[in-house]
Amino acid sequence: MNKKTPYILIMPIVLLGVLFIYGVINGIVQSFGYIPAFNLRDFTLDYYIEVIKSPAFLDSLKVTLHISLISSILAAVLGTILTAALVYTGHAEGKVLKVIKLAILIPHTIVALFSISILSQNGLLARLFYKIGLINVQSDFPLFLYTKNNLGIILGYLWKEVPFVAYFSLSLMSSINKTLGEAAENLGASRLKSFFHITLPLSMPAIGKAFLIILTFSFGAYDLPFLLGATVPKALPVQAHVEYIHPDLRHRPYAMAMNGLILLITWTMAGIYYLLSSRNRIKGDKHEGY
């Protein structure tokens, strides 16, 4: 109809999009040490080099990767089992799903509170261990919070992300199971075989995408590591924020360089995911061809 209509419709998203891109580019420009307002005018890679060379950064990177990889892999596996359980027991809709949605709705800050009241040395789990005689004093209970193992953070992420993976892949798996899974069983495949040969592989696009979302999210997230992490090493986003609010404004480029690296690693993860998933797709096509 009217040729102007689409341009009117996209006006707000374009304005916000420009602001978004400007913000990201501005951060990247600052990471190269160009902040005229602070009298920094040299375009340089020095900040990146310095950040990468510092042992503190490498420790932070390790901790962040550790948290996000372990929590995301476990969440993907457990989430897939939960999805399958919901599909095969006929709970793909209804009350059970409402509870699962509730977990998605709880913010990470409150999840941190859960971790504190259950996993700390005087938390409910420690009390339970004491009651059944597994430990004798509070300090016998293993440390989950504010330590280098970051188990409190990982368990917190699992609490949110297992339901997320299940919710995200439920509709695909349920529809595949209804049609092709039943066909496979009808052709003589056992339930387990039909799940592993038909339903699971065909549900992988959704599960894979959910995995990518939680992986990149937990890599760049602030709340849980800020509330439950150790003082040193801090997770990267927390460390970047510490540099960002440093009273000495010349620390700003370091913060931005860390952000640049977070961005680079996030995009690398996404890139690897797309490479892998497109290669699988090509392989799948060839199989179909035969």
Binding site: I13, G23, G27, G220, A221, P237, H241, A255, N259, A270
Partner: peptide, 21 residues
């Protein structure tokens, strides 16, 4: 692409970048 792009940038990175703007 632009409408989906904020999903590709962690909110911490994006927030610090846009703060200055």
């Amino acid at each position: 692409f632009i409408s989906m792009a904020p999903n590709l940038v962690p909110s911490t990175v994006f927030a610090m970048g846009i703060h200055v703007v």
